[in-house]
Design a protein around this nucleic acid. Structure first.
Lengths: 202, 202
DNA sequence: TTTAATTTTGACCACTTGGTTAATCCATTT
DNA sequence: AAATGGATTAACCAAGTGGTCAAAATTAAA
């Protein structure tokens, strides 16, 4: 419980997060994590018994990072257009700060589907909350009839994909100009929100 | 050049495709590929000198699979709404038949960005072709003003993501009901097309 | 049938991997 | 200062990795 200990554990977690997010479970090496943390490899095992345990910690962390805010927004009493706008902004902003998360999660859920489904169920997220809001607005005539599930998947798709496909966009479209790519991403907050609202607004 | 030889090589390629697509480069094992092909591991090296070489073959194949049709559609002289409709249909249908491609490519382009950018450039795909069509239609007043790049990324996003995120959708939303998931995917051909057109049509 | 060439195999190798262990270091307590 | 206990290290290990090689099996050529 000393300062020392907490610092070391955190150091390892930070290093592990960096390596795991960049290379995935299979591509990550315990030695590389130790190097990144500038400590002996045994120390990593001393704090987290195995690669699996360490990975679990990182995965849970990465995963829990992008759930709460979204759930919070969805449960609020703002009108649906504002909800959508905040949702898109929050999602994109979070990925700007954690650009590896999309690819990481998308790859790892394929390697181990059960783990992630379990994590999702732990979060107590209820996909029907937003669905009810949508249906409600449809009935009020605020928006056009639409399948709420398709709508939410559309929203998430347009936020996630440009990050998962960053090397293509940056390398092929933007000639490796990082700033051009980042500006494109920044534009999307407004662009995607408007694109969605234009499609559903009555 | 006998029947035998061609068959063996194809057998290996098929096995390798299956394993690489499911597990990625790092997760794939030469032994597993050999087992899948029901041959000796050395034989894999006999036909494709190394894991890298074999992977390159698979990657190029997987990659080239989803480029031509799309390019063809985009270059045609159909009106923009039809182009969009065909684009969405083609894309989704192809992923239905190759469900691992999205995750595979998204993961591997992060591991080796240069390779994929090179492959893209080989394809001679010109992103501006569709862009010009869009601008043209905007000027004619057929569709609302929109940044063509954001539009095309939106389109691809909504096609790709539901496949990359299959384990989440299937496990969390559809309670592991494969058919429910597949039906949802099938619905998206119509749903996404309408969603887009509704947003841009004047 | 004999010979030559090709394809397939099993044994093997060097290296890397995650993980263990015993010794050492170091701060705190007595 | 001595002892205690946790933190850190270096050396090491067994299992698995991609890859090689020479022998065997099969096919083609003579």
């Amino acid at each position: 419980m000393t300062e020392e200990e907490k610092t070391t554990e955190k150091t390892i977690l930070d290093a592990a997060k960096k390596v795991f997010l960049a290379k995935g479970y299979d591509g990550a090496r315990m030695q590389e994590i130790a190097d990144e943390a500038k400590i002996n490899k045994s120390l990593v095992h001393y704090y987290f018994r195995s690669k699996d345990k360490l990975f679990d910690a990182i995965f849970k962390d990465a995963f829990s990072q992008f759930i709460p805010k979204v759930a919070e927004t969805m449960a609020s009493d703002k009108d649906i257009f504002e909800k959508i706008s905040i949702f898109i902004d929050t999602y994109i902003e979070m990925f700007i700060n954690n650009p590896h998360i999309p690819t990481f999660i998308l790859h790892e859920i394929n390697r181990n589907p059960d783990r992630i489904v379990g994590l999702f169920k732990e979060t107590k997220i209820d996909p029907s909350v937003f669905g009810l809001t949508v249906i409600n607005e449809i009935n009020k005539g605020t928006i056009k009839p639409i399948n709420p599930l398709h709508l939410i998947i559309n929203m998430i798709s347009m936020c996630v994909f440009p990050f998962a496909a960053k090397p293509i966009l940056k390398g092929f479209i933007f000639q490796n100009n990082e700033n051009a790519y980042l500006q494109f991403i920044a534009e999307r907050k407004k662009e995607v929100t408007e694109f969605i609202i234009r499609s559903i607004k009555n």
